[in-house]
């Protein structure tokens, strides 16, 4: 009886001890408790928003944490971060350390490494921690885009005026094309006949192609801004916020480009008297080219200043 009890107790203790130790060891292993940890020191002029245990992240993944904070004799805050061995390749000499204070959620230190092939950061080096504040940063980034959008609006206004003006280029072309319809209604390649200049035809086709291309790009950006606006702060993205206004401008732009596109489609379907039409179309094409160029620059600017490409969706922390 006594031996049976001893056996059962021994068996139970052994099995459960193994299970407990295995579980704890596995969790500890996955949490890098056993891995070699490298310590780096960063400097900052202020300790505000810095806390021990704050995560250190690369591309949204936590790779380490702040282990200690210290104020030195020169009044500089020294921040020690601990990075496990397996993440050490993310910390290079060119790495930039940014204190990221998101709109929602806890602050964290973001490591930006442009060249992973660069030499490792020396443990003796003390890189400076720069600060990033989501709201101010986005407003700062958005400001030149808004200015540029204003200039585009002026150009668009010009084009719109021509569309609306009964004596404007587009309307005049339309009237002329209507006349041509009667004459050459049964002919093929009516545009060629109307203009009589192969170079001009080519240029107009090119412009049309560019408009479609740019329209698609701007539309894509709008969709991404829509996705972003649905997830962020009311103040920034609300009805009176910065990005909705910008979005409205772009929508207006798209609408107007669509009008021009339709006009050109109409032209393409009609005939016209060659000499007069060529002159009018050339003038319009130049204006169109200028607008296209500006829109292209704007699109590039947006892509450059808001990092949609690497981060398709702005995630909340």
């Amino acid at each position: 009886m006594a031996r049976r009890i001893e056996f059962k107790v021994g068996l139970f203790i052994t099995i459960v001890t193994i299970l407990i130790l295995a579980s704890i060891t596995y969790v500890a292993y996955r949490k890098d408790v056993f891995s070699i940890v490298h310590t780096y020191t960063l400097s900052s002029k202020t300790g505000e928003n810095l806390t021990v245990g704050m995560p250190v992240a690369v591309w949204g993944f936590t790779i380490g944490k702040v282990s200690s904070l210290e104020l030195n004799d020169q009044g500089i805050v020294l921040i020690q971060i601990k990075i496990p061995e397996r993440h050490i390749r993310m910390i290079r000499a060119n790495s930039k350390f940014i204190l990221d204070k998101p709109l929602i959620g806890i602050p964290r230190i973001v490591v930006q490494t442009s060249d992973l092939g660069d030499r490792p950061l020396s443990p003796q080096a003390i890189p400076e921690l720069t600060e990033s504040n989501d709201i101010n940063e986005i407003i700062k980034r958005a400001q030149p885009i808004i200015e540029k959008a204003d200039r585009i609006m002026a150009n668009i206004e010009g084009i719109t005026a021509k569309l609306d003006d009964p004596e404007g280029d587009v309307n005049r072309i339309l009237r002329e094309t209507e006349t041509l319809i009667a004459r050459f209604s049964k002919r093929d390649s009516l545009l060629e006949i109307a203009i009589g200049d192969p170079e001009s035809i080519k240029a107009i086709h090119e412009s049309l192609r560019k408009i479609k291309e740019i329209t698609a790009r701007v539309d894509g950006i709008l969709q991404r801004i829509d996705a972003m606006a649905g997830k962020t702060d009311e103040e920034l993205y609300g009805p009176d916020g910065v990005l909705p206004q910008f979005r409205n401008i772009l929508r207006d732009l798209l609408m107007k480009l669509a009008k021009i596109d339709t006009t050109f489609d109409n032209i393409n379907q009609v005939s016209a008297e060659a000499v007069d039409s060529t002159k009018n179309l050339k003038g319009l094409r130049n204006e169109l080219d200028e607008t296209i160029m500006t829109i292209r620059n704007l699109a590039d600017e947006i892509d450059r200043k808001i990092p949609f490409k690497t981060q398709p969706e702005i995630k909340l922390p």
């Binding site: 006594a2 009890i5 001893e6 059962k8 107790v9 139970f12 203790i13």
Partner: peptide, 15 residues
């Protein structure tokens, strides 16, 4: 012995 018996009654018997 006391420990083993107590552990048996507390943990193993109730399992």
């Amino acid at each position: 012995t006391v420990f083993i018996h107590q552990f048996y009654f507390t943990s193993v018997q109730i399992l």
